[in-house]
């Protein structure tokens, strides 16, 4: 049996039905419990988010697709003034957790940010309770920069990677991940309006 082929799609290019599904995916307890803002997103808040998204100064949302099936969501914020990009991602179906989709999304995000957007820093902020994701970032070459405390009392770890650090890591990761899952037909739309 052949391995799956995956595609990346900008949420804005998807049908309205898919855009609305984003709220359901995001509100699943296993997803929102790992988010910086873990409260449920209301219908009106999601509608406002969708209206703002096409004009958002930094935010782009992409989907990892297998055929017509969305498997993962990637949020990218490209800060042009600091030449940096912050990212986050989640898998849509709970049973898909830990099976490599997160690593695949992290790989394509880093390639996009560093090779196409040419940013000088890619960073992420992760709840310190989310140890597996923090470990995953480390294996991609991210360095820990420090912690911040949220109003909730939860701790966030900021991790960052430079283009040079990524160049040192990417070949080994590429061999592994592309063997698992070729990613074809990537439709990145650069951040910012």
């Amino acid at each position: 049996m052949n391995r799956s082929e995956y595609h990346i799609r900008n949420l804005l290019m998807m049908e309205d039905q898919v855009k609305w599904h984003l709220r359901e995916w995001r509100n699943q307890p296993f997803v929102r419990n790992q988010m910086i803002q873990s409260e449920e997103i209301s219908e009106s808040a999601h509608e406002a988010y969708l209206q703002k998204l096409p004009h958002h100064p930094t935010r782009q949302v992409y989907l990892l697709m297998e055929g017509e099936t969305p498997l993962g969501v990637m949020n990218l914020d490209w800060f042009r003034e600091t030449d940096s990009l912050e990212f986050g991602f989640f898998v849509i179906r709970e049973h898909d957790q830990y099976r490599g989709l997160g690593a695949l999304m992290e790989y394509v995000i880093l390639e996009h940010a560093i090779n196409e957007l040419a940013v000088n820093e890619v960073f992420c902020r992760t709840l310190t309770t989310n140890e597996k994701t923090i470990a995953l970032h480390r294996k991609f070459g991210f360095q820990s920069l420090g912690k911040e405390t949220l109003e909730t009392g939860n701790l966030l770890l900021r991790q960052s990677i430079s283009p040079q650090e990524w160049q040192d890591k990417k070949d080994g990761l590429k061999r592994m991940l592309m063997r698992m899952a070729p990613v074809t037909d990537i439709q990145w739309q650069n951040g910012g309006s």
């Binding site: 957790q97 830990y98 099976r99 490599g100 989709l101 997160g102 690593a103 597996k132 994701t133 470990a135 995953l136 480390r138 294996k139 991609f140 990761l173 592994m176 991940l177 063997r179 698992m180």
Partner: peptide, 29 residues
């Protein structure tokens, strides 16, 4: 500091599992 403590009945995969997303891909390969 990332090495796994191996045992025959260890949980590999899932919420209680020891493998993160990249470990899992690596092990499969």
């Amino acid at each position: 500091d990332q090495k796994l403590t191996l045992s025959q009945d260890m949980a590999l995969f899932g919420k209680e599992g020891v493998l993160d997303s990249l470990d899992f891909v690596n092990l499969v390969m």
